[in-house]
Write a protein that binds this DNA or RNA. Structure first.
Lengths: 340, 340
DNA sequence: GTATATATAGAAAAGGTTTTCTATAGAAAT
DNA sequence: ATTTCTATAGAAAACCTTTTCTATATATAC
């Protein structure tokens, strides 16, 4: 059975398709008599308008693309919820995509979304190449970068103050007497990873602590990589373990915990652990982790607002905004003072 | 700057739009000479085809709608990944939506997706009314129900064997000597909730244990509701606590844990806890929970396959398939044998 | 009583593709 | 040399809306 179109409705109600459209969209006066006939036909035929055709004509899809590293990461999930809380009441729907930290996949996803003519894209990029993004910007297509900057990219940006926060978090470890600190890095070509590492490094430097190369781990922001890296580090340093681990994101903190647990190394008694960003169900995890708490929901809200703003007002060259959110240090139970 | 269309490309290359389309889609022979000209024009104009127009013409969007209670629930997240693993290689993209267990929202979401002309919908319904779904089915629109049946609904169904699994899980508690068991229910009008409760109830009945009304809690499948219900239960039964809690889904198990923790009630020493479905990061939670482990990824895969099948083969009246996945009892550390 | 405004309705264009239908040129077959 | 096929290319229709442009009838103003 073919799906009813506006033409079918018009025929059944004995009116023109213009009239049907007007009744449905309530944007032009229609006599009560015809309105009744149209409504009747609509319900008899169980007509449901074709949003694809409407989008083609109106040149807008009421859709926003959201592309992040991994939507199952609670951090990005919270961002997604923040975005939705803003744009959903305005009639926009979201299309979520995960890049899995793979620049090629990211590029494909962006192209796909653009071809679908989403009205804007909110992106936490894992790429350093801004050429495609700038190409889109040139077509005055709105792009909102979140969580990660892309060098030379013409787009609005909503990021955290990674450097200062990481500095503060490292300082906290140092103040508790830690000198042998292991850091688990994300992919250093993404800005949040490198900024966090820089903040960490600077804190050590400022305190005259030198950073052992073996204590700098590659984790790629992913749990399994961090798990493997920590495990290997432990095996290689049985007699010279660091006193603390600094995970530069939540997933890698989880990976570290899993590895430590396997060797029965207790937090914080045997080793201290801090994380940049909250892990899943933090209230049920022992011990409660001392973290930099990012307000992911707020980042999402800001991104949603910015997207709507650009959709409505357009994107003008050389007029891009940058918001820097300030995270918070949450001192909990995973850092032991080893000076006492 | 207007976005380039196929017409712009055709003009620039001095060919017809048919030729451009053919070059891009590679579905009809085009001479090398013209092909070169077209490709050149495409790159000069930075042309990116309009998928909306293509969808309108081809009557397919290469999109599948997925609507579940809450995409931040790791159970549904795993399902989503399972679906994606199947449909993404075939060129389909997913649109995820959360109903928050709200039937009205579900209905709106379904309508929106249908108007967007997604090619199929995969749905974990929180509604008992099949009328709208059947209306869609009548338009031969493919609907795949997952996790939850809807009465009298013309659709393919992929569910777990909730009754037997719940029975098995309850039996496990009973075999460990538990008689005073508290159950936290989901919304009983959704099939998975009622079937799990029935399995639980039957196990008690078969063992001659009677179920106290005060031990039957309403949790609505949500963490906060379960948290509140358990807390209240504890306050009202300080001197007559159950020896075990049976949570009928993962989120409510988390809620129960949070509540118990607040009263410093230890699992499993003071009270045993089992869950239907794994909670977040189960390997990092103490103690490791004894659960019915649902293979959510497999459910997603099956749903993806079924969706593709229906998209390709169409939906015929009275020819719907039903798959029943068999979950597994995973005995871990959260149940204490109180007979010893 | 004529000119002008207002309310309502239909016709038709436009949005950007894909695909069928025609058309042409050259190759192959007779 | 004439017919038949094949390869290639363009014209035009179709997909389903929204919206502009016309048209008509009635109401208002002078």
């Amino acid at each position: 059975m073919r799906r009813a179109t506006i033409t079918d409705v018009a025929k059944r109600a004995n009116v023109s398709i213009s009239t049907v459209s007007r009744v449905l969209n309530k944007n032009y006066p229609v006599s009560d008599e015809l309105r009744q006939k149209v409504l009747q036909a609509v319900s008899e035929l169980n007509y449901q308008p074709n949003a694809v055709a409407r989008s083609l004509k109106k040149q807008t899809t009421n859709t926003i693309g959201v592309v992040v590293a991994d939507i199952s990461n609670p951090f990005f999930m919270q961002i997604a919820k923040g975005i939705e809380s803003i744009v959903s009441p305005q009639g926009y729907q979201l299309i979520f995509c995960s890049t899995d930290e793979n620049p090629t996949k990211e590029h494909t996803l962006l192209r796909l979304l653009y071809e679908r003519r989403v009205d804007a894209i909110i992106l936490a990029s894992c790429d350093t190449d801004s050429s495609y993004l700038n190409q889109l910007a040139q077509n005055s297509f709105p792009i909102i970068l979140i969580d990660r900057k892309v060098p030379n990219c013409n787009a609005d940006v909503i990021v955290e103050d990674n450097f200062s926060s990481a500095y503060m978090l490292a300082q906290h470890l140092i103040q508790n007497g830690h000198r042998k600190i292991c850091v688990i890095n994300g992919p250093l070509k993404v800005s949040s990873a490198s900024e966090r590492f820089e903040g960490f490094r600077k804190a050590l430097e400022d305190n005259g602590i030198d950073l052992k190369k073996e204590y700098v781990l590659e984790g790629n922001f992913m749990r399994c990589d961090a798990y493997g890296a920590v495990k290997k580090m432990i095996l290689n340093h049985q007699n010279d373990l660091p006193t603390a681990i600094f995970a530069t994101n939540n997933l890698m903190a989880e990976g570290a915990m899993a590895a430590l647990r396997e060797f029965n190394i207790k937090i914080p008694d045997d080793i201290s652990l801090v994380s940049f960003g909250d892990i899943s169900i933090p209230d049920l995890i022992d011990p409660k982790l001392t973290v930099i708490s990012q307000n992911a929901f707020a980042i999402g809200q800001k991104a949603g607002e910015m997207a709507l703003y650009r959709i409505k007002r357009g994107v003008k060259k050389h007029d891009f905004k940058e918001f820097i959110m300030v995270p918070e240090l949450r001192i909990r139970d995973s850092v032991k003072n080893i000076e006492l």
